[in-house]
């Protein structure tokens, strides 16, 4: 039997918002270490990796590993039925063909349960090699979302260049060109507003704006975002999810023809 109880159902609501435009369906792999999801978008340009650790749940039980094939549009509909402050419990029998979501209002006066059919998804799993990245940039997630939104007005691609001076985001297209440079912040009193850059060697890569704007749907999950880059390997965009886990987006670069 699988049962996971989370006092803050808002976390799951935000997780769904963070993946539902990029993925249509995905397999939630449940084990005693937690819930993991790995899926590529339909065009195989990006990969989403979600990890929610069992010790981040208020109650967690997983007697046997369980893979739940979920239609994300359906799950989004169910999550919309939950209040932000509701307590959420996910429940499924072993090798079940459905999963039940229960939502309890904080004062326990309203108890709802929704049963959703599961799908048989034979999704291929990719091996993500451990990488020591040349550049690791941490910046406010709202700032990154703003940069991706603004630059996508100028062109389909963004060039992200990281040097020891700072990180530069550039775009060019029919109306002209745009450059946004962020320097490392000196001493900021609020950690969440810092821009920090760890650079082993400078890197410059080109990415499609469309996917970056999908990734920034995860902004409500974390005040900071971490970008990891190395020459000719996918960009990693990581948002921490409270104390329970993280969501990582991998984006293949655009390369010279």
């Amino acid at each position: 039997m699988f049962e996971a109880r989370l006092v803050q159902s808002s976390i799951f609501k935000k997780v769904l918002e963070a993946i539902k435009e990029l993925l249509n369906e995905a397999t939630f792999d449940c084990s005693d270490s937690g819930i993991q999801l790995q899926a590529m978008d339909s065009s195989h340009v990006s990969l989403v990796s979600l990890n929610l650790r069992s010790d981040g749940f208020d109650q967690y039980r997983c007697d046997r590993n369980l893979s739940m094939g979920i239609n994300l549009a359906s799950m989004t509909k169910i999550m919309k039925c939950a209040g932000n402050d509701d307590i959420m419990t996910m429940k499924a029998q072993d090798n079940a063909d459905s999963v039940t979501f229960m939502f309890e209002s904080p004062n326990q006066e309203k108890m709802s349960d929704y049963e959703m059919k599961l799908m048989n998804l034979d999704q291929e799993h990719l091996g993500i090699p451990e990488t020591d990245y040349s550049c690791v940039i941490k910046l406010p997630s709202a700032e990154f979302a703003r940069i991706c939104r603004d630059l996508s007005q100028f062109g389909e691609s963004v060039v992200i260049s990281c040097t020891k001076e700072g990180v530069k985001f550039s775009a060019a297209g029919d109306i002209g060109s745009a450059n946004i440079k962020l320097a490392q912040t000196a001493n900021v009193d609020k950690e969440d507003e810092a821009v920090s850059i760890e650079m082993q060697e400078k890197v410059s890569l080109t990415f499609a704006c469309r996917y970056l704007n999908y990734f920034t749907k995860a902004t409500p999950l974390s005040p900071q975002v971490c970008l990891s880059m190395s020459a000719e390997v996918p960009l990693v965009v990581e948002y921490k999810i409270g104390e329970i886990g993280h969501i990582r987006y991998y984006l293949a670069p655009k390369i010279e023809e």
Binding site: A208, K254, E257
Partner: peptide
């Protein structure tokens, strides 16, 4: 610039 596929970087397990 051509868009590459994520599968060309991460082998299928």
């Amino acid at each position: 610039m051509a868009q590459s596929s994520i599968k060309s970087f991460f082998p299928t397990r």
